[in-house]
Design a protein around this nucleic acid. Sequence first.
DNA 1: GTCTATAGGTGGATAGAC
DNA 2: GTCTATCCACCTATAGAC
Lengths: 210, 210
Amino acid sequence: MPRRPQAPSDTATQVLDIASRLVQTRGFNGFSYADIAAELQITKASLHYHFPTKADLGRRLIERYETNFVAALEAIDREAGDAHDKLRRYARIYAAVLGDRQMCLCGMLAAEHGTLPEAMRTELKHYFDANERWLARVLEAGRKSGELHFDGKPLAVASLLVGALEGAMMLARSYGDARRFDAAAERLLADLRAPLSVPRRQRAAKRAVR
Amino acid sequence: MPRRPQAPSDTATQVLDIASRLVQTRGFNGFSYADIAAELQITKASLHYHFPTKADLGRRLIERYETNFVAALEAIDREAGDAHDKLRRYARIYAAVLGDRQMCLCGMLAAEHGTLPEAMRTELKHYFDANERWLARVLEAGRKSGELHFDGKPLAVASLLVGALEGAMMLARSYGDARRFDAAAERLLADLRAPLSVPRRQRAAKRAVR
DNA sequence: GTCTATAGGTGGATAGAC
DNA sequence: GTCTATCCACCTATAGAC
């Protein structure tokens, strides 16, 4: 258990909480220090004490998001059963974010990539790399055990999965319909599970409901 | 052949061209009238003559983008061969945009959905609906002819495809690596093509190179 | 750590001349 | 259709007091 250097409700943490939610709903270019200041009932100037520039705030948002995400993945590794269960839990992390009517922090920032400061771009890649590495490891183990079926490199499938889930999330949010995401995620996972030698009728019946 | 009510290089069209490129690289919240004015060497005030508000400009950007996209889909219907060829050409439209280091206009706007004026949100859905309807039609015909294989409703697969391609595009752009998109698109299409009864080794060999 | 005050810039948008 | 001039709201960021 990592100890916290500061109380969880100190100002910097509260700023990050609010800013994270704002990025995930409005984008990095869609909010300002004034929004945070109003919600926290503090002045804009005070915010600059904790985060000198907006780029700095953005970089630390990604850092924290990745830290939390990696922790969630480690929890899955501890608690989940087979590879398919791990993938299903992975997709559920996304679904939970979407349930709060939010977009993945890094998916949102990826869209805004063209306007991001360099420091944020670097952190962003780091986040997606970590995602893909974890997925690739799960995929490889699942294939080795005969539980999952796919051609080519695990990392290529991992890359597809991350992109497909982020994209599905984005569209589901635009439609205001979370089931769109659920359906996409379920289908992606089912395609990995279906043994190619099994006839289609069996395969359809076998597909698990969430 | 639809006749043009105005010359293709009139001011309004030039504004739309520049604005479209700016949205597709920087996002709707990432550019201003000043950017367009500077590039067109015209004043901001003049821009408001053609597009009174930014919301109006945004709405007409989507309208035009959808019109052009639908025209491209009709061209595919005329020129393409089988269903798989149609899907491949569909993916190539995305790839071409990405080749210009741009994001799909509507994919970008979907990310910014939370800050868009209502008129733009409506147009946005309309665009994605048109995409999915076309894909669903191609998918259904392909399945009927035995060329494509998938479970469930064609519209559900279409929805997955649109999201997956948009997401793959977004990540490929963040990584500055268009091959990431190509790999994802190829895999998505291969999964639809692979007859489930064919052993994996044959299937891998069968997968067409672009 | 938080404040007041302010700088210096940019945002979208309008009035009215030409 | 395009211009000059201008409005006012908002932006990020800083200086310096408490």
